[in-house]
Lab assay of single mutants.
Amino acid sequence: TYYTVKSGDTANKIAAQYGVSVANLRSWNGISGDLIFVGQKLIVKKG
């Protein structure tokens, strides 16, 4: 599943929404920190 980042989103918020850990969200998308951008497409695997 892909999720498009919206204004006000955070890695924590997206992870919680899908029931996954922030560490997994980072791993699936090659993100090292919490910096995400509006319009960015993230791979999300439901927990």
Rank of each mutant, 00 (worst) to 15 (best):
T1P: 08
T1W: 14
T1E: 13
T1H: 12
T1S: 10
T1Y: 13
Y2G: 04
Y2E: 07
Y3E: 02
Y3W: 03
Y3F: 03
Y3N: 01
Y3L: 03
Y3R: 01
Y3P: 01
Y3A: 03
T4A: 06
T4D: 05
V5P: 01
V5I: 05
V5M: 02
V5Y: 02
V5C: 07
V5K: 00
K6F: 03
K6L: 09
K6G: 06
K6P: 01
K6R: 10
S7I: 15
S7Y: 14
S7E: 15
S7W: 13
S7H: 14
S7K: 14
S7M: 14
S7L: 14
G8F: 05
G8I: 02
G8E: 06
G8M: 05
G8R: 03
G8W: 04
G8P: 02
D9M: 02
D9N: 02
D9A: 00
D9P: 01
D9K: 01
D9H: 02
T10C: 06
T10R: 03
T10E: 05
T10D: 08
T10V: 04
T10P: 02
T10N: 07
T10M: 03
T10L: 03
T10K: 04
T10Q: 03
A11K: 03
A11S: 07
A11W: 15
A11L: 15
A11V: 15
A11Y: 15
N12M: 14
N12V: 15
N12C: 14
N12E: 15
N12I: 15
K13R: 09
K13T: 14
K13V: 08
K13S: 15
K13N: 10
K13G: 13
K13E: 10
K13C: 08
I14S: 00
I14G: 00
I14H: 00
I14N: 00
I14A: 00
I14M: 01
A15H: 02
A15M: 03
A16K: 12
A16L: 12
A16P: 02
A16C: 13
A16T: 10
A16Q: 12
A16V: 09
Q17T: 11
Q17M: 15
Q17R: 12
Q17Y: 13
Q17G: 06
Y18H: 12
Y18I: 07
Y18V: 07
G19K: 08
G19D: 08
G19L: 07
G19N: 10
V20D: 02
V20Q: 04
V20R: 00
V20A: 05
V20Y: 03
V20F: 04
S21R: 04
S21K: 06
S21G: 05
S21N: 07
S21P: 07
S21D: 09
V22L: 13
V22T: 07
V22A: 07
V22Y: 04
V22R: 03
V22I: 12
V22W: 07
V22D: 04
A23K: 09
A23W: 08
A23L: 08
A23D: 14
A23S: 11
N24H: 10
N24V: 12
N24G: 06
N24P: 01
N24F: 07
N24C: 15
N24T: 13
N24W: 09
N24K: 10
N24R: 08
L25F: 04
L25S: 00
L25N: 01
L25A: 00
L25E: 00
L25Y: 00
R26C: 14
R26W: 11
R26F: 15
R26A: 12
R26G: 06
R26I: 15
R26Q: 13
R26L: 15
R26P: 02
S27L: 15
S27R: 12
S27K: 14
S27C: 13
S27V: 12
S27E: 15
S27G: 09
S27P: 02
S27I: 13
S27N: 12
W28S: 02
W28T: 02
W28C: 05
W28G: 01
W28V: 03
W28D: 04
N29I: 03
N29F: 04
N29K: 00
N29T: 02
N29A: 02
N29E: 01
N29L: 05
G30W: 07
G30Q: 11
G30D: 12
G30T: 08
G30Y: 08
G30V: 07
G30R: 09
G30H: 11
I31P: 03
I31N: 04
I31A: 04
I31W: 07
I31G: 04
I31C: 08
S32C: 11
S32A: 12
S32G: 08
S32F: 11
S32V: 15
G33T: 09
G33I: 10
G33L: 14
G33V: 09
G33N: 11
D34T: 08
D34N: 11
D34S: 09
D34R: 06
D34W: 07
D34H: 08
L35M: 13
L35C: 12
L35W: 09
L35H: 12
L35R: 12
L35T: 13
L35D: 15
I36A: 02
I36K: 01
I36F: 09
I36E: 02
I36G: 02
I36H: 02
F37Q: 10
F37H: 11
F37Y: 14
F37A: 09
F37W: 10
F37L: 09
F37K: 10
F37N: 08
V38K: 06
V38A: 09
V38C: 08
V38L: 08
V38E: 10
G39Y: 06
G39E: 03
G39Q: 02
G39D: 05
G39R: 02
G39C: 06
G39A: 03
Q40A: 07
Q40N: 05
Q40Y: 05
Q40F: 06
Q40W: 05
Q40G: 03
Q40E: 07
Q40M: 11
Q40T: 07
K41T: 12
K41Q: 12
K41E: 10
K41M: 12
K41N: 09
K41D: 06
K41Y: 07
K41L: 14
K41R: 13
K41W: 07
L42Q: 00
L42P: 01
L42W: 01
L42N: 00
L42Y: 01
L42G: 01
I43E: 05
I43C: 11
I43R: 07
I43F: 09
I43H: 06
V44G: 01
V44L: 08
V44F: 05
V44Q: 00
V44C: 03
V44M: 05
K45F: 14
K45R: 13
K45L: 11
K45M: 12
K45V: 11
K45P: 06
K46H: 12
K46P: 15
K46A: 13
K46Q: 14
K46D: 11
K46Y: 13
K46I: 14
G47C: 09
G47Y: 12
G47Q: 12
G47I: 14
G47T: 12
